[in-house]
């Protein structure tokens, strides 16, 4: 069973995306902000994290930085989810260490492909 951690503040998107991912037979853990996302990641060690960028309490950038700093979470691949299509965001995501980047509205098929690719990469380095 592949476990995914979805960190998303918007309830509708969280619900919609988690349901679609569960249909694809993934186990989906949920977090509503960066801080909670970091806690869940430490606690449950998911195979992959889907991280929204714009969030209250702790945003995606900060959470990402924390996760990549800790030994037990730094190996977990992270896909950034953002409504921002700006190039600067893409640059920033690449630089900080997001493993992939998915612009909203999410192309679900492409997202699943990316998830599978990253998980495959992680288990067969």
């Amino acid at each position: 069973m592949t476990t995914l951690l979805l960190v998303e503040d918007n309830e509708l998107n969280r619900n919609m995306l988690s349901r679609r991912l569960e249909r694809m037979t993934y186990t989906v853990l949920l977090a509503v902000n960066g801080e909670e996302g970091v806690d869940q990641a430490h606690k449950h060690q998911p195979d992959l994290i889907l991280m929204d960028i714009n969030m209250p309490v702790m945003d995606g950038w900060e959470a990402l930085t924390l996760l990549k700093e800790h030994a037990d979470t730094k190996e977990i691949p992270i896909i950034a989810l953002t409504a921002h299509t700006a190039t600067s965001d893409r640059d920033k995501a690449d630089k900080i260490g997001f493993n992939a980047f998915a612009a909203k509205p999410i192309d679900f098929k492409a997202l699943v492909e990316t998830i599978e690719g990253l998980i495959y990469e992680r288990h067969n380095p």
Partner: peptide, 21 residues
């Protein structure tokens, strides 16, 4: 605004796709 507009729109599009499936 566009963020605020897009977030529900993403949900609409997403749910529409899901229901379509």
């Amino acid at each position: 605004m566009s963020h605020e507009l897009r977030t529900p729109l993403n949900a609409i599009i997403g749910y529409a796709e899901m229901l379509q499936e």
